[in-house]
């Protein structure tokens, strides 16, 4: 145990934690997206899905796990970033990057955007602080009317817009993150470099389009309160 703590406190060990937690968050993002897309099947589907999640015996297990994974991802990243800044105390007066990507350069920034979006998202749809008027609705079966909440929420252009913008920025984090995940876990071989590169683009585009479709289709009126 002491040995594990010691090895996972090195720079490479820290990176492995970031990669593993990032990968877990990625899996969550996919699952959450698929669940949310029941909104397109109408009120009954989404409200039923939400009620099933709420009542699931393992729901608290997953909630705590998710929070722990997220906190670990952020804390370890903060530790790594601090050590990395310390390693170059004097900056170059002129430095020209050769192949560093835009997304890799702004990982901390895009991560902070994700974090603030997450806070906003939880306050909005989980705790009902931002639009309390849409939070207390119930459907005909006395279930929490998540469908009505989401659809009325995204009618507001500011809300819909900030969701879309945040998801796009999350996409930037994921493009570098998902590709890095393989390198950090030691998966890099010329015979599947291309597969990983385009697989990551496909995955991230899928996640971004999947999430963005919800506020966009609601705001445009394609998905309405009556369902469908």
């Amino acid at each position: 145990m002491i040995r594990l703590v010691r090895l996972f406190s090195t720079s490479v060990g820290d990176k492995l934690i970031v990669a593993l937690t990032g990968g877990a968050l990625l899996v969550f993002l996919l699952g959450h997206m698929l669940g949310n897309m029941t909104v397109f099947q109408g009120p009954d589907s989404l409200n039923g899905y939400a009620a099933w999640l709420q009542g699931h015996p393992l729901v608290w297990f997953f909630r705590f796990g998710l929070v722990a994974v997220f906190v670990a991802h952020v804390l370890v990243t903060v530790r790594l970033t601090k050590a990395n800044r310390r390693a170059r105390p004097v900056r170059y007066s002129r430095r020209v990057a050769r192949q560093m990507s835009f997304t890799s350069r702004y990982m901390v920034l895009s991560g902070l955007v994700v974090m603030s979006f997450l806070a906003f998202h939880l306050l909005h749809l989980t705790f009902g602080v931002i639009q309390p008027e849409i939070y207390q609705l119930e459907d005909s079966q006395q279930r929490h009317d998540v469908y009505a909440m989401v659809v009325s929420g995204f009618r507001n252009p500011w809300i819909a817009g900030s969701y879309v913008l945040s998801i796009l920025l999350l996409g930037l984090h994921l493009i570098h993150g998902a590709a890095s995940l393989f390198q950090t876990l030691g998966i890099n071989h010329e015979s599947y470099t291309v597969l990983i590169r385009y697989g990551v683009y496909l995955l991230v585009t899928g996640i971004v389009l999947g999430y963005c479709s919800i506020p966009l289709l609601i705001f445009s009126g394609t998905v309405s309160l009556e369902g469908g």
Binding site: S11, A83, N84, S104, Q183
Partner: peptide
Amino acid sequence: LVEAMDREGFGGCTNHYECEAV
């Protein structure tokens, strides 16, 4: 080697790949 690298005050890899380019 990794522990020694950390001890000497080098940073860690964040997959920018600038090293390979130079």
